[in-house]
Design a protein around this nucleic acid. Structure first.
Length: 424
RNA sequence: GGAGAGAUGGCCGAGUGGUCGAAGGCGCUCCCCUGCUAAGGGAGUAUAUGGGCUUAAACUCGUAUCGAGGGUUCGAAUCCCUCUCUCUCCGCCA
């Protein structure tokens, strides 16, 4: 949610900045709502003040046993208009709220301006793509040949965009998650969190998935729950409606969860393999920061994600998303893209974002500042990393000519020392 | 699933229709006193939002908020209804 004060005082400038990310703000519509609000609110509050004063007076008169008829008569005269005004105001505030709720965040000044993925800016590169002396296979061929991935079974059991893993590949998947959790907790200072996979609508509003992106979510209608599309939702909402003591800031959480996405609108995209699934595992980093430190924290968090790739010796690059390619709530986002030899390209494996106070304002997540006044926190999160896609990257980058897979050195302790995954 | 109890400010906890944004305590802030420490005295201390004033802040006048949403009433923390959550007991259960 944008700061309503900013929107009121400078709608044109807000519209201009939103335009850089391809979002249009109907300034005239907003101002019409605001003009109406102003008059209605002042009138309603005047009436309420008069009613309160009269009611108080009636109380005092009755206490003294005096006649209240005159006051009663005046207050009765207010009733109708007051009720109408209150209803109209409540309705109007709802409409304003709905209007503001679907406005995306403003891009940070450092974000490159652009319209689409094509305008994203590569920031850095790490590692070099391995030269293969044979024709590389993709993870689907590799996994199926190893007997470790069974897409047919997953399709039978559930449907399209699901994966079933077995044996050493399933274990590799688990090893990756464990490795990431251990690295972030032991080396990067994050607190491990186990969180619900079903959340309520308020949590999804807080992080910005609702009300606008309902169609991307799995909704358990019988109970009102939604399956989480990312651990960002339950973990960031830890601080919803909370005021964190300054001494406890910043909060750094890491959480491994499955993520569930309907992938509405991505028909025909990445249909092969496990790149784009309805269910996938992710290790998520979440930070609750003070505004002073939050921008440094984004760099740090992104580094923490990069270190996972470096420990796994997977070549990657860091990309600064342009204004037009960022998510709804983000002020700035870095994507990490891992090298996939079978696709001969880099593919997104992590997304690290800074939301400034946008999410915090939606969920009233605050900290007590130096003056011991509550102040909106800044929230950040990033994948560290998407486990399924990391598995894909390991299979493809570590493949041998015979289709077996070398286990990355960093993962061997998590694989009981196994060095090579061969056909089961 | 059945029966019952409950939800009040940063925390604890009073408050069953009127001057209650809310006693009291704790905590916190400032001041005083005490040559340190401990103890003591005084004052202050919710959030959101609107108007006024202002470059802004401060200030000031309002409004709303005692789990959420409705209702009764001139007036609701207090009465009624619905919902959510928490706790206790029973049942079921990994």
């Amino acid at each position: 949610m944008l700061d309503i004060q900013l929107l009121r005082s400078n709608p044109a400038q807000v519209a201009e900045r939103l335009a850089t990310r391809g979002a249009s703000l109907d300034v005239a519509a907003f101002q019409a709502l605001e003009d109406e609000r102003k008059g209605l609110q002042v009138r309603t509050q005047d009436l309420q003040a008069r009613r309160n004063a009269l009611s108080k007076q009636i109380g005092q008169l009755k206490a003294k046993g005096e006649d209240t008829a005159a006051a009663m008569q005046e207050v009765a005269g207010l009733g109708d208009e007051l009720k109408r005004n209150e209803e109209a105001l409540a309705d109007l505030l709802n409409r304003i709220n709905a209007f503001v709720s679907v406005i995306p965040n403003l891009p940070h000044e450092s974000v490159p301006v652009g319209q689409s993925e094509a305008d994203n800016v590569e920031v850095s590169r790490w590692g070099t793509a391995r030269a293969f002396a044979f024709a590389v296979k993709d993870h689907v061929d590799l996994g199926e040949a190893l007997g470790g991935i069974d897409f047919d079974a997953a399709t039978k059991i559930s449907g399209a965009r699901f994966t079933l893993m077995k044996g050493a590949v399933a274990r590799l998947h688990r090893a990756l998650a464990q490795f990431m959790l251990d690295t972030h907790t032991q080396e990067h200072g994050y607190t491990e969190v186990y969180a619900p996979y079903l959340v309520n609508g308020n949590s999804l509003f807080g992080t910005g998935q609702l009300p606008k992106f309902h169609e991307d979510l799995f909704h358990i209608k019988d109970d009102g729950y939604f399956l989480i599309p990312t651990a960002e939702v339950p973990v960031t909402n830890i601080v919803r409606d909370e005021i964190v003591d300054l001494a406890q800031m910043p909060l750094k959480f890491v959480c491994h969860t499955p993520c569930f996405r309907r992938e509405a609108g991505s028909y025909g995209k990445d249909t092969r393999g496990m790149i784009r699934q309805h269910q996938f595992d992710k290790v998520e980093l979440v930070r609750i920061e003070t505004p002073e430190h939050s921008w440094a924290a984004l760099e740090e968090l992104t580094r923490h994600a990069e270190i996972i790739l470096e420990k796994l010796e997977l070549p990657y690059r860091r990309v600064a998303l342009c204004t037009g390619d960022m998510g709804f709530s983000a002020a700035k986002t870095y994507d990490l893209e891992v090298w996939l030899p079978a696709q001969n390209t880099y593919r997104e494996i992590s997304s690290c974002s800074h939301f400034d106070a946008f999410q915090a304002r939606r969920m009233q997540a605050r900290f007590r500042n130096e003056k011991s006044k509550p102040e909106l926190a800044h929230t950040l999160n990033g994948s560290g990393l998407a486990v399924g896609r990391t598995l894909v990257a390991v299979l493809e980058n570590y493949q041998r000519a015979d289709g077996s897979i070398d286990v990355p050195v960093a993962l061997r302790p998590y694989m009981a020392g196994l060095e090579l995954i061969e056909k089961a």
